[in-house]
Simulated assay, not measured.
Amino acid sequence: MKKGDVTCPRCGAGFRRLELASGSGSKGEYRCPVCETTLEQFDGDTLVAYRLTIQPSIRGLKTG
């Protein structure tokens, strides 16, 4: 199992990323649930899970 931290470049939300090489996942992508920015695309070879650990910055969500 691999563990790591990922930060959304758009809103600043923080995530814990877990990857299990022993399990097979599905093809697709993971998007930030706050701002919909794509954080990773999956090829399905491993099982990957994300968990929100740091709330996003309000400043990062403002446009203009």
Rank of each mutant, 00 (worst) to 15 (best):
64 G>Q: 01
57 S>H: 02
61 L>W: 00
26 S>N: 08
10 R>P: 03
1 M>H: 07
12 G>P: 00
27 K>H: 12
4 G>P: 02
28 G>Y: 09
26 S>F: 09
52 L>G: 10
28 G>L: 02
48 V>P: 09
63 T>K: 14
25 G>H: 12
29 E>H: 11
37 T>A: 13
33 P>A: 05
23 G>Y: 15
9 P>G: 14
41 Q>D: 11
30 Y>D: 09
62 K>A: 08
1 M>Q: 08
38 T>A: 04
44 G>V: 02
41 Q>C: 10
31 R>Q: 15
46 T>S: 04
22 S>H: 14
27 K>S: 13
39 L>H: 03
47 L>R: 10
55 Q>T: 07
40 E>N: 06
16 R>G: 05
24 S>C: 10
16 R>H: 08
55 Q>K: 13
25 G>L: 12
50 Y>L: 00
18 L>W: 05
48 V>E: 05
7 T>K: 07
10 R>Q: 13
11 C>N: 04
25 G>Y: 12
55 Q>F: 12
44 G>M: 04
53 T>G: 05
46 T>M: 04
55 Q>E: 13
32 C>Q: 09
37 T>M: 08
20 L>F: 12
5 D>N: 11
50 Y>D: 00
39 L>Y: 15
13 A>S: 00
36 E>G: 05
27 K>R: 15
39 L>E: 06
14 G>Q: 06
47 L>P: 01
44 G>S: 04
49 A>W: 02
32 C>Y: 15
13 A>E: 00
33 P>C: 05
60 G>L: 00
13 A>F: 02
49 A>Q: 09
40 E>M: 12
44 G>T: 01
